[in-house]
Design a protein around this nucleic acid. Structure first.
Lengths: 188, 188
DNA sequence: CCTCTGATGTCAGTTACTGCCATCACTATA
DNA sequence: TATAGTGATGGCAGTAACTGACATCAGAGG
């Protein structure tokens, strides 16, 4: 006989996602989430530091993927090329769960608090990219700037990929945005 | 005889800055701030929506400056040139209060919550820039991308300008970062 | 059979924030 | 001059996010 149902963390996350989608983030209480998962408020805060953090526990894996890809990029690749490879790897990752990404983004877009959290996660990704580039020998401020610019491209591409009805691969948008960036900086 | 001391808002802001600097953001309570300003907690929340918002009430003016500058830029200016003019105007604004900027940034850098708030303010600036560019006839996604990239440059430049001992004009960093951006995107 | 561990529950406490109503110097108007 | 607002504040009760301290108890290992 098991004392507790397994995977409390997963059940909490699922309950939270469902409730945030049904009622909105602001109008759902942690007690509600815990109750739907058959657990206690206190236990929720043992698994997630925050009411918001439930929606962002994939960020760590994403960051590791980005870093690994940048470090593993061919030595001949320029900083921006290495960063682009990382974005494309991320694009593939998201591509496998488009429905989930859309639902999650709807929830985030409806709450300022969640947008703040998303932005700091993105900033953390930018910093991780920059740090990985430095390991490749890229100097500052080029490393930092490339990280920021790459994340900007990711934001815009992800946004379009989520909004459009039948967008195909997200990486198409990534490459397109890169082209536009070249246009923007070259135009004099 | 006056019923209340004038400029409660200013007194609250000043008390908050001082306490955040002395004890850190997390360890100061709104009640403390109000007390030091000779007011009540309730009154604090009539002037600021948030405990964090005290540090960001200049953001509105900054945003208006950026928008005005982009719209007023010569018709011949490219999107990035127009955005750059706005950044330079902002640079001049900050240049007049470097000490204040440094102290404020120290406070923000010591608190994750405040960093989140800062990031969403910056995102709002990026969107305002994009929207001003659209008014100049710039299409999306160029407008959005230019807004994001401009803010990325601002972040990096501001960061360097605040960190270095005797940096001179912030706009030097802005122009330098722009040059580096061209290098990054051009390198193939 | 015993002990230890790890995931959970319980409970009390702090603090950010909100709604509602009271207060009262000052102002405009009859 | 009397009266009826007005606007900035105080007071107070309430909600909900989080935290710390301690209790519980099935199962693992000896």
């Amino acid at each position: 006989m098991v004392r507790w149902e397994p995977d409390s963390r997963g059940r909490l996350a699922q309950a939270a996602m469902a409730l945030y989608g049904e009622q909105g983030f602001d109008r759902t209480t942690v007690a509600e989430i815990a109750e739907r998962a058959g657990l206690t408020e206190r236990t929720f805060f043992r698994h997630f530091t925050d009411k918001r953090e439930v929606l962002f526990w994939g960020a760590q894996a994403l960051q590791e993927l980005l870093v690994k890809t940048v470090i593993g990029a061919p030595a001949s690749a320029t900083p921006l090329e290495a960063a682009t490879l990382a974005l494309e790897a991320a694009g593939d990752l998201f591509g496998q769960r488009r429905e989930f990404s859309i639902q999650r983004q709807h929830i985030i877009d409806a709450s300022t608090e969640l947008q703040e959290r998303e932005l700091i996660k993105l900033a953390s990704l930018a910093e991780a990219l920059a740090s990985a580039l430095r390991e490749r020998g890229v100097k500052d401020p080029t490393a930092g700037l490339t990280g920021e610019v790459a994340i900007a491209i990711f934001k815009i591409s992800f946004d379009r990929w989520v909004s459009e009805p039948d967008p195909g691969e997200m990486n198409t948008f990534v490459r397109e945005s890169l082209e536009q960036l070249r246009g923007i900086t070259a135009a004099q």
